[in-house]
Design a protein around this nucleic acid. Structure first.
Lengths: 218, 218
DNA sequence: GGTCGAGATTATGTATACAGAAGTCTTGTG
DNA sequence: CACAAGACTTCTGTATACATAATCTCGACC
């Protein structure tokens, strides 16, 4: 693996997991020394992060982007548009069997979650498989790409919302409804189920953070 | 201006204007010598182009991306989703006076176009102002960013469709309808006018290219 | 005492040198 | 004559050295 790829993955992870706070300046010499590489591959990594919107190239050095409450609203507005359309397209073009299987798994998810130690990883992996299945079903690489670039920010937001077992179970049911609608080949229903799920998710995030979270564009 | 910026702008223009054909390999030494810069800023430029989707970083060297008929369909599918939503949001949040002015200008556009030498530049500049006004009105930087990344590819497609004066006049009328709906504060109408315009544009492009254009991902 | 300016310092932007990998051409053998 | 193996060529990936620009600080002058 290339050094620039490692640097990119490392920094991306640090930003998404909030180990690098918004507003942090990523000086080239400092970071290249920290990661044990030279400035050249680091610059490529920073360029990719900036293209994704995780950092901004303001004046001197690149700084870690913040996420304000307005950003979350904007993000979900776009997300509703893209994922709603994607769900509708998947219902038209997807393979029903695939989504029937995912629906079954999602209906079983709450049982796994309510166990002793909530297996967040398993749940997120399952949701990720649903996302991947939708991406493949829509047969639209540009739409898929747009959603992928959104998901980076959403994962970041997810860390802000302390997902309890209750919300996870509800979310699993909502995802199951989406999968069911897609499997049934019903575009309108798939879009409606998606919109519903996203509104619930956004409400949950906002309720969790009645007090404003870390603020905004560094 | 930085050397990497100049290289990026130059290559981007060459690709959009089809001076660099799809499938062309952009070797680093070759291009850096052609542009009179060193490999370092050139690599940054290539990275930006690849992030935008104008080039792909397959195996050895980056190659200029192609646009197939399927790509155009996918592109317009996403475009309909994003611009439809944007028009609806602009109708809700935009300043009516701005769009009334744009509507008036667009209604006068056909007179300018039907002159001796069709002033394509003026028309495209006017449409660009409408896009900019919508971007500003929606108050959603993520949606605006998604549309900006789309427009790069659309400009490229525009060069494939030989826009005659007749089509330009019709397009101006369609744009005027969009501006009118936004000025009227009618989201559903604005979205409908946008969807109508995009379908007409796509039909025109497809009719122009009954014979398949340059094909596919390089 | 405050403010403006010049110098120093440090960071980014660029060029170049080096290393590793991949592809191609050539040559030898079956 | 065809196929395979090896060396050579060439390209990308990385490191480092140098240039340039911006910022911070210190000092002088008002």
């Amino acid at each position: 693996m290339r050094a620039s790829d490692r640097a990119y993955a490392s920094l991306r992870d640090d930003i998404i997991e909030w180990r690098l706070a918004p507003g942090t300046v990523l000086a080239e010499v400092e970071q290249s020394e920290r990661l044990g590489i030279s400035r050249t591959p680091l610059r490529e990594a920073l360029g990719r992060l900036t293209a994704e919107g995780l950092t901004t190239a303001g004046g001197r050095g690149v700084v870690v982007t913040g996420i304000s409450l307005e950003d979350i609203d904007e993000l979900f507005e776009l997300r509703e548009t893209l994922e709603g359309k994607a769900a509708a397209l998947a219902a038209r073009r997807g393979d029903p069997a695939t989504f029937e299987g995912l629906q079954r798994e999602l209906l079983n998810a709450p049982q796994l979650i309510s166990g002793n130690h909530p297996a967040l990883h398993d749940y997120y992996e399952l949701v990720g498989r649903l996302d991947t299945a939708i991406d493949a079903a829509i047969s639209n690489s540009y739409l898929a790409q747009a959603m992928r670039s959104l998901r980076v920010h959403l994962v970041r937001i997810r860390r802000l919302a302390a997902d309890d077992a209750c919300r996870l179970a509800a979310a699993a049911a909502e995802h199951a409804a989406i999968a069911e609608a897609i499997a049934a080949g019903n575009p309108k229903l798939a879009e409606a189920a998606t919109v519903l799920h996203l509104h619930r998710s956004l409400s949950h995030i906002k309720a969790t953070h009645a007090s404003p979270p870390k603020e905004h564009h560094g």
